[in-house]
Amino acid sequence: MDVLTWQQVVELLRYDFVRDMLVAGAVLGLLAGVLGPLVVTRKMAFAVHGTSELAFTGGAAALLIGVGVGYGALVGSLVAALLLGLLSRRDSDRDSVIGAILAFGLGLGVLFLHLNTERTANKFGLLVGQVVSIGSTDLWLLVSASVAVLAVLAFTWRPLLFASVDPAVAVARGVPVRGLAVVFAVLVGVATALSVQIVGALLVLSLMITPGAAAVRITASPVRATVLAVVFAEVSALVGMALSLVLGMPVSVFVTAVSFLIYLVCRLVGGKRQRVQ
């Protein structure tokens, strides 16, 4: 394992692909941090995993036909989000629907990779991430899609939070709970597609779920939980990328390790607070 010196790391910052990598990580950290607490509150961790499998399928299909992986992953995630939002109308159906979609997406993605005869690192990157392959076009897609997701979320955050915390009362108050569920599933689908290029389909939960799960462990305030989740996600993404550059290992190893360490610390802090109270 070749370990870089800090001087060599500073030299790397002169390259466009390194700067694009860090910008992508920062944008994704913001997006994942904002969505994370709502995903945890709505108990959608399994849904995020299922959506990531369809993002993998879309990315594999894009590789096969020769278009941008990011666009394929985005289409795959949107299809998964719409299917989850439309087919899981009852809570009792949700897990079975997600399981069916997850298995189908994974199998189809493997088929697309098998049909692709080109030797490319993007095949493996779809599963575990390959952030250094992000180009200016992918970065533009990431930034523009993130802005769109955050804009929609800004207009729907209050009713979404209400519907997430107490859906029965929200329905009684006239909140369009079913429509909001589909909208939120689409937002999560877009964020998941963007995450796949950073940490891969198999490790997408490390950014989309773990920071939010850590934040809700130490605060019951939705606003504070969102702020903390953003901080945790940013630290996980940027510190993970920095360690990847220094140690020359896959970025997903460090992103997942940092986010899990933060979660463990928050779980310990939250447990001590509960015992004191």
Rank of each mutant, 00 (worst) to 15 (best):
S236E: 03
A170Q: 03
H114C: 02
V251C: 02
S88H: 12
N116C: 12
V9I: 15
G25H: 03
L31W: 03
G248Y: 02
L247C: 07
L261Y: 05
V239Q: 09
V40D: 03
F232V: 12
V97C: 08
G66Q: 02
V251R: 05
L35V: 12
G59Q: 06
L84H: 05
A47K: 01
L31G: 04
A163W: 01
V48L: 01
R89C: 01
A73W: 04
G129T: 12
G36D: 04
G271M: 06
D93C: 00
F232C: 10
A193C: 07
A172C: 09
D93N: 10
A81N: 05
S259A: 15
T210V: 15
L54R: 02
L82W: 11
L87K: 02
V40N: 00
L247I: 09
I65E: 12
E11F: 08
L161R: 07
L141W: 10
S195E: 08
R94N: 00
L150Q: 10
L4W: 06
A26I: 13
D166G: 10
S92T: 13
A45S: 11
F56K: 02
R94D: 04
A73G: 10
D138T: 10
K123S: 12
V110P: 00
D20R: 15
T137Q: 14
M21C: 05
V79S: 04
R119E: 14
A191Y: 03
L139M: 07
L238Q: 11
D20W: 11
A80R: 08
V79P: 03
M249G: 00
V227C: 09
G70D: 00
Q277P: 01
V67N: 00
L139D: 08
